[in-house]
C-alpha cells in the first residue's frame, strides 16, 4: 500500500464533511472515489494535500505520516493534484504553467536567476524540455504561448494534468478531470489515465462520469455524507444496495 488513510475526519462547524474515512491505495492502480454531490470527496482531497488539514486521523505515505505537513512539503513528497474548479495560473503562458510545476526539482534561486550561471541554464533547459514533452503529450504544443485563461475548458483540464505531472509525482490526485469534456475528450482521457498507470503512476480520482470510472478504476470507494459506504471493484460497487440507495434512493431525487 502506497497510501494508507485511517479514521480521517474533518468538520465544518456542525457539518462533518469527512467522517472517519479509511482508505488504502495500492501502488500502480487507479483508485476512484465516487459519491453524490456533497459527499465530501473534494474535502477529502484537500485533507490529503493539506490545503485544508484534517481535524484528526492518520495519513501514511510510503510508511511516513504526512498529515501535519504543509501543502508544499506534500508536493515535495511526490503527491500532485488537479482541482475541481480548475486553478491554473491564468495570466501565465501554457508553457510557463507547466514549467512552474517542476518547481520542486530545481534549486537555482536569486543568484542563479541574476547571473544565469551554468546550473541555472541547465535547470531551465531540463524543465523546459520536460514541460514541452508533457504539453505535447496532452496535445497543447501549438498553444504553448497562449495565456492559460484563453484555452477552452477541456484543454484547461488537460493543462492542469500536465502541470501536475511536471512535478514527477508518484501519486496523482485528479478531482473531476472529465467535467466539461465531450465524449471524444473523455475517451482520450480514459486512454491517457491508463497510460499513466502503465508508466508506474498511482492515480486517485474523483469523478462523476460513471462510464469513465467503471472503465478505468481498479478499485472504487463510495462516500456519502462523508462516510465510506462501500468499496470494491466496479461490479461489486454497482451491485451494492447502499450505493444504489445513495444514488437513487428517496433521500436524493
Amino acid at each position: 500500500m502506497i497510501l494508507e488513510i485511517t479514521k480521517l475526519e474533518k468538520k465544518f462547524g456542525g457539518l462533518t464533511a469527512v467522517n472517519a474515512v479509511d482508505l488504502s491505495v495500492k501502488e500502480e492502480t487507479i483508485h476512484a472515489v465516487i459519491g453524490p454531490n456533497g459527499a465530501g470527496k473534494t474535502t477529502f482531497f484537500n485533507n490529503i494535500t493539506s490545503i485544508i488539514p484534517a481535524d484528526s486521523g492518520r495519513i501514511i505515505w510510503k510508511g511516513e505520516r504526512i498529515e501535519r505537513l504543509s501543502p508544499q512539503a506534500i508536493s515535495a513528497k511526490g503527491i500532485a493534484r488537479t482541482f475541481q474548479n480548475i486553478r491554473l495560473f491564468a495570466y501565465m503562458s501554457v508553457l510557463d504553467n507547466v514549467i512552474t510545476g517542476t518547481h520542486n526539482h530545481y534549486k537555482s534561486f536569486v543568484w542563479g536567476a541574476i547571473s544565469r550561471n551554468a546550473r541555472y541554464r541547465r535547470e531551465e533547459k531540463e524543465s523546459r524540455e520536460l514541460a514541452m514533452e508533457l504539453i505535447e503529450k496532452v496535445g497543447l504544443a501549438d498553444k504553448r504561448h497562449e495565456y492559460a485563461r484563453n484555452l477552452p475548458y477541456g484543454e484547461q483540464r488537460k493543462l492542469e494534468i500536465a502541470r501536475a505531472l511536471a512535478s514527477k509525482p508518484k501519486l496523482l490526485l485528479l478531482d473531476e478531470p472529465a467535467a466539461g469534456m465531450n465524449n471524444a475528450e473523455t475517451e482520450e482521457l480514459d486512454q491517457f489515465i491508463r497510460a499513466l498507470r502503465e508508466d508506474g503512476l498511482t492515480v486517485l480520482i474523483i469523478e462523476h462520469d460513471v462510464r469513465l470510472i467503471m472503465s478505468i478504476a481498479d478499485r472504487i470507494t463510495v462516500l456519502d455524507y462523508g462516510v465510506k459506504i462501500a468499496e470494491g471493484n466496479a461490479v461489486e460497487v454497482q451491485n451494492d444496495d447502499r450505493v444504489i440507495e445513495a444514488y437513487l434512493g428517496k433521500r436524493r431525487a
Binding site: Q72, A80, A90, Y91, S167
Partner: peptide
C-alpha cells in the same frame, strides 16, 4: 495567480 495552486506545486 493562485496561492493554493502555487503551494500545491511545492512553492513556499
Amino acid at each position: 495567480e493562485d496561492e493554493i495552486a502555487a503551494s500545491s506545486m511545492g512553492i513556499s
